[in-house]
């Protein structure tokens, strides 16, 4: 394995073969445009992402009139991935949406570097890459057109979008699929295209909902590898998953945060007496 990528991180899924190592050097050409690396220095030595900590304090989430989880606390340091476990309906996807700022928590607070998300709703808008269950891709467009749209839409002019795009295509092995319209792809191939979106703009926090579903063994390994590199650069990730992934960082079983059966459905101002 590439020695540089392992700095400070234990191990990323053992299955990466040699061709992946070769891919990586191309991938970094894109990532490294942010802090220009000293000539010839190993690209992995620098941390492109500024130090940022994601924390959840006493989070509770409501779906309809049902409390899904409550009392959730976690802290995620740069280079760590938070793996969310729990049965269906335990609120994994809901938590990811809370963290993306797409929906507000029922109670509690999400903090990014100590700053409260509820105070500045747009705080995480450009820090987050959210790969949800839906793929955010258009059936009528080809793989290339899909990626090109996101690349250009997300591009802020400060990065070499072309290199980022090339890296994304390489890392997920999409070279042969570029001209094919999305509706002609298998679900695993689609998933890879949607994951390629993560690499189109360098953003520190990745929120991934079931990222490994529909992927074959080889591409699962590639994804783990990709995640490892993201973390090694000081990135953060939160993953909802059913698989045991070998990533550094805390894990949370949301089943432990489900409300007790007899608990009041929610504490609404309606119950306050005065």
């Amino acid at each position: 394995m590439d020695p540089g990528s392992g700095a400070g991180v234990t191990k990323f899924g053992g299955g990466a073969d040699k061709s992946l190592g070769a891919d990586r050097s191309i991938a970094y050409a894109g990532f490294m445009t942010m802090p220009k690396p000293a000539n010839g220095a190993a690209p992995h030595a620098t941390q492109p992402f500024p130090h940022a900590v994601l924390a959840g304090h006493d989070l509770a989430c409501r779906r309809g009139d049902q409390l899904v989880f409550h009392g959730l606390n976690f802290t995620l340091e740069p280079g760590e991935a938070l793996c969310l476990y729990g049965p269906n309906g335990s609120g994994k996807t809901s938590l990811l949406r809370l963290l993306a700022g797409l929906s507000p928590p029922f109670s509690g607070e999400i903090r990014w570097n100590g700053e409260a998300l509820s105070r500045t709703p747009a705080l995480l808008r450009e820090q987050v890459m959210f790969a949800g269950f839906s793929l955010a891709l258009k059936e009528a467009l080809s793989v290339y057109e899909n990626l090109q749209f996101w690349s250009r839409f997300l591009g802020d002019g400060g990065h070499d979008q072309k290199a980022l795009m090339e890296a994304a295509i390489n890392r997920l092995g999409l070279e042969d699929l570029l001209a094919i319209p999305l509706h002609a792809l298998s679900s695993g191939q689609r998933k890879r295209v949607s994951l390629a979106r993560l690499l189109l703009a360098p953003r520190p926090l990745w929120l991934l909902d079931e990222p490994t579903t529909a992927l074959d063994r080889d591409h699962q390994a590639r994804l783990i590898d990709l995640l490892g590199d993201h973390l090694a650069q000081g990135g953060l990730a939160v993953l909802a998953t059913h698989q045991s992934l070998d990533l550094p960082g805390p894990r949370l079983d949301l089943d432990g945060y489900a409300p007790a059966f007899d608990a009041p459905a929610f504490q609404s101002p309606l119950f306050e007496d005065g």
């Binding site: 993306a100 808008r125 450009e126 959210f130 949800g132 955010a136 891709l137 839409f153 802020d156």
Partner: peptide, 11 residues
């Protein structure tokens, strides 16, 4: 198809 989520998190 989830595009709206991604657009909402864009620039």
């Amino acid at each position: 198809d989830g595009t709206l989520d991604a657009l909402a998190l864009g620039p």
